[in-house]
Computed example of a mutant assay.
Amino acid sequence: MVLDLTASAADITRAICDIPSVSGTEGALADEIEQSMRAYPHLEVSRHGNTVVARTSLGLPQRVVIAGHIDTVPINDNVPTRTVQIDGAWHLWGRGTVDMKAGVAVQLKLAAELTAPEADITWMWYDNEEVDEARNGLFLLAKDRPDLFAADFAILGEPSDGRVEGGCNGTMRAVVRTRGVRAHSARSWVGENAIHGAAPILTRLAEYRAREITVEGLGYREGLNAVSIRGGVAGNVIPDLCEVEVNYRFAPSKSVADAEAHVRAAFEGFEVEITDAAAGARPGLDAPIAQRFLAAVGGQAHAKYGWTDVARFSAMGVPAVNYGPGDPHLAHHDEERVPLAQIEAVERGLRAWLTGA
């Protein structure tokens, strides 16, 4: 089967949602996308694992990258898709409708139809976004083909409720440890309870007040939260180790080093190990091409609180935003669904910007 890209973006969304592509199993959908794109002579198509790239080469003075991931979290009785009416509006319900196959469908339709855009376009559809970075198709493509990322501006079709979300927060995970001395719980006084010793860590977290930091006119809300706690040996043993895993979301004005310093200061006096970190991305909306984009889609930019792959573009010197259909609160939800009208609105906005209409 080759996707029918003459269909509406909503129908294309349904078609690609009904091709299961849980992270690690995107091959069938990548095949469909590659075959569909190769039918259009105005596009240069290449395949990198299960990442498909299609480019125009019109010699225009500017180039934009528009990207979307094709994988989903696991299905939970929410495929095949179906159309449902909620509060008088029609939605497409099913896994992947929000995160982020509706955005991918809009991109596929526009890639097929826009033979004379105002800027050259590089379309990217990549795999394994929902899992660890080492498997992320965009990460691997950037390592092997950084030349494909040369652009003046980038858009990631992550669900943003049809709004423009500039940049993204950074993220850091750390383990905060307390150590004690094992003993029989019947003689607890000869030991030292590491779990009890973690109480001040939890107090500091409970008392922490999230800050909102303005970066280039957008307010990024930070957060410091415990996400797991581990400790204990047996039901009759005083534990000698407790580990509290903490996640810090930080404004894109901070570097990873700044974030680490903040976390270590927050838990001064405790053993802290940084286990994972990714810098955020500044909004990058001051460039003329970005301002034209905002004007074309008729939107006001907002901050992106979560981390997304826009940070990869930002790290390569390409300003990037999130712009796609779907309420991000419904991403990964068993009631995942996207309004049909929002799919159409995002398509209209991107088409207007890319064609100057």
Score class of each variant (00 low, 15 high):
Lys254Arg: 15
Gly306Asp: 12
Thr308Glu: 11
Glu271Ser: 14
Asn236Met: 08
Ser314Asn: 13
Val233Thr: 15
Ala290Lys: 06
Gly298Gln: 09
Gly223Trp: 00
Tyr305Phe: 12
Ala265His: 11
Val244Thr: 11
Ala278Cys: 09
Asp258Leu: 06
Ala266Arg: 10
Gly219Gln: 11
Pro252Asp: 07
Asn225Glu: 13
Trp307Pro: 02
Gly284Met: 10
Ile238Ser: 06
Val297Met: 00
Tyr248Glu: 00
Glu268His: 09
Pro283Lys: 11
Ala257Met: 12
Asp309Arg: 08
Asn236Pro: 04
Glu268Thr: 11
Ala261Leu: 10
Lys254Asp: 14
Asp276Cys: 08
Val227Asn: 06
Asp309Asn: 12
Ile289Asp: 08
Gln291Glu: 12
Glu268Gly: 10
Glu260Leu: 00
Ser228Cys: 09
Leu224Ile: 01
His302Asn: 13
Ser228Phe: 05
Asp276Ser: 14
Trp307His: 12
Val272Leu: 06
Met316Val: 04
Ala257Glu: 14
Ala311Ser: 14
Ala251Thr: 14
Pro288Phe: 03
Arg282Cys: 06
Val227Trp: 01
Leu224Tyr: 00
Tyr220Arg: 12
Ile229Pro: 08
Ala296Gln: 05
Lys304Gly: 05
Ala226Thr: 07
Lys254Ala: 13
Asn225Tyr: 10
Val237Tyr: 07
His262Pro: 05
Val256Arg: 14
Ala303Asn: 01
Arg221Ile: 06
Glu268Phe: 01
Asp286Leu: 10
